[in-house]
Simulated assay, not measured.
Amino acid sequence: MGYKDLVVYDTDKKVKEAVAARFKINACDTVTKALDETDVVMICTPADSHVPLALLALKKKNAAFIEKPLSTSMKGVEKLRKSGGKRVMVGFNVRFHPMVLAIKNLIGKMGTIYSAHMEYAYFLPDARKGTYASGYAAKKGQGGGVILDHLHEIDYGISLFGRVRSVFGSAQTISKLDIQTEDTADVVLGFKRGFACSLHLDYLQKAYSRSVKIVTKKGIIEGNFATGILKVTEYGKKVTTKKFQKGFNETYKHELRHFIGCLKKRARPAIDVGEATHSLKVALAIKRSVAEEKVIAL
């Protein structure tokens, strides 16, 4: 990104020193000292600490970029929304993937949406080799489990389809993975525009899977992030395909450039606290639906 005047703080001294050495930046002894030396802070901590740290950052006159999810509960979220304004963004990088942007453009041309299906699945021990059991994904109180950890799918679904009006979910811990959280979830999202989207999430598939399928009046849109292929079937016309990047590295750069650009222009970022609050409410409603075994209206 070209920025060199950086500092790092982590509660784990070894992690902090390793990051400082790798990127040749200064390590701070306390979070307060780190905030005193910065103008913009990136909060990449377990989700239960996001809101308190963001509020502290704002108090110290810092802008804040918060990794998803915004939080694990609604505690403090409204206060952050009111005080954050244009100076807080939540990191949902999948929205910036060129395939998602292409699908969003196509939706407006394909007529009424009849249904949709989304999936995100991988084998957790392979994705986080050697650390999966000690990381946040394995811990219930830190935002782990597929419902919150895979919140990207809900968020980019909202960016494509609009607001969610109801949810019904089923989630389990099927495997013998060393985790405290659900490893599988199946959800029906009822969107305000009048159709349902089924969503499958899991930590179990050893063959990485990430995709979206949208059935419309004029045809079918199928995006496969694992292969990078977008397939569009327009009824009565030729099937078209387009190849996109497989990975997501560039999307992290895009979202940070967007945030920094908004700060410079004093513009509101695409995913401010208010926008991120809706996806969090959806995830929490899914958890409630699982616990109460019923449809939850938002």
Rank of each mutant, 00 (worst) to 15 (best):
I154E: 06
G157Y: 02
L160A: 09
R163C: 02
V164G: 10
R165V: 12
S166E: 12
V167L: 06
F168A: 03
F168D: 03
F168K: 15
G169A: 15
A171I: 06
Q172P: 00
T173C: 02
T173W: 00
T173F: 00
I174F: 01
S175Y: 00
S175M: 03
K176Y: 00
K176E: 13
K176H: 10
Q180Y: 01
D183Q: 07
T184M: 10
T184P: 02
A185Y: 00
A185H: 03
V187S: 08
V188H: 07
V188W: 01
L189F: 14
R193L: 01
G194F: 10
F195G: 14
A196G: 05
C197N: 06
C197S: 14
C197Y: 00
L199D: 00
L199I: 02
H200C: 09
L201F: 14
L201M: 12
Y203Q: 05
Y203T: 06
Y203F: 15
L204G: 05
L204S: 08
Q205G: 10
Q205T: 13
Y208A: 12
S209I: 07
S209L: 09
S209E: 07
S209N: 13
R210C: 13
R210M: 13
V212G: 09
V212F: 04
V212A: 11
V212L: 10
V212M: 11
V212R: 01
K213E: 15
I214N: 07
V215D: 10
V215K: 13
T216A: 14
K218V: 06
K218P: 08
G219T: 01
I220P: 06
I221G: 13
I221V: 14
I221S: 09
E222Y: 06
G223W: 01
N224M: 02
N224C: 08
F225E: 04
F225G: 10
F225I: 02
A226S: 14
T227A: 12
G228N: 10
V232D: 06
T233K: 14
T233Y: 02
E234R: 15
G236Y: 00
K237I: 00
K238V: 13
V239R: 11
